[in-house]
Design a protein around this nucleic acid. Sequence first.
DNA 1: CGTAATCCCAAGTGTGTGGGTCGGAATTAT
DNA 2: ATAATTCCGACCCACACACTTGGGATTACG
Lengths: 152, 152
Amino acid sequence: MNITTKGHYGVMAMTELAMHDGKGPVPLKTIAENQGLSEHYLEQLFAPLRRAGLVRSVRGAQGGYLLGRPAREISVGDVLRVLEGPLAPIECALDGNPEEWENCTNPYNCLVRDVWVKLYKTIEEVVNGVTLEELCQKAREAQARRNPMFYI
Amino acid sequence: MNITTKGHYGVMAMTELAMHDGKGPVPLKTIAENQGLSEHYLEQLFAPLRRAGLVRSVRGAQGGYLLGRPAREISVGDVLRVLEGPLAPIECALDGNPEEWENCTNPYNCLVRDVWVKLYKTIEEVVNGVTLEELCQKAREAQARRNPMFYI
DNA sequence: CGTAATCCCAAGTGTGTGGGTCGGAATTAT
DNA sequence: ATAATTCCGACCCACACACTTGGGATTACG
């Protein structure tokens, strides 16, 4: 049940973007330096994020990335689904095209499947329930407390 | 966020064991045939399950495996933790020894970590909340309904 | 207009894991 | 003695992860 660095870094980077919302584009170099990540690797993550409309890009010098829509309208789940794919524990727990699984001849499978479906729904609830705006809010609170961790 | 075939097959096999609870040991061959799985692969899964005390083995002819404790006291989470390892989405969301992560200098990481911790707890709640007994119960209901899927 | 900063794109790479297979040794009921 | 089992360790191959490398296209700024 793990998420990979793609989803992890993706959410972190998106949070930093959200922190700069309304202040012009943020280059990946800045994010990479601030968070100790590889700039080139971040590029790979931002390609699908852009295609999904979660970010907008501005090319050329002084360019960078902007949120594609308000921070309150982007959830952690949105980012994860783009970078990690569907969050179902196993494929046959997905909603769509269950035809593929209709000829499933293993009764135990279909019995246990209900557990995965329940798990899937719960995971979705959690990650859809946290927005970038909320993460920003917490970040600012930490800053306000002059938390030394926050050198942002 | 996927579980692998280990956890999946493991829970299915354990459910079949639970269905035969009190009726003597069930050989892996039977489970493998009933569910269309590889007997050798199942062996690999039952080694750790036995070490964890979730099953007991009876060697030799007419041998097989038995539940290590009552079906009501074995949850899906128990099986998953043995076969999949900890169910935390990322390592630093685990409970124990957070010292390793104390020198985490990335503020965004620690912010986002809260989401993973929440996710971790929710996942645990779901999988710990389903016991083999409940799965058996549902299996028997399906049988009672003469569900053709159930040739068990 | 040149240059530097940036995004964009396509490959390559090394390590690990997933999902098994294979062959055989030890144990035991019949 | 034989057959049915568990037990054990090795092997294997394809694919995913977590990047790196090398460049091309675009644009602000001097």
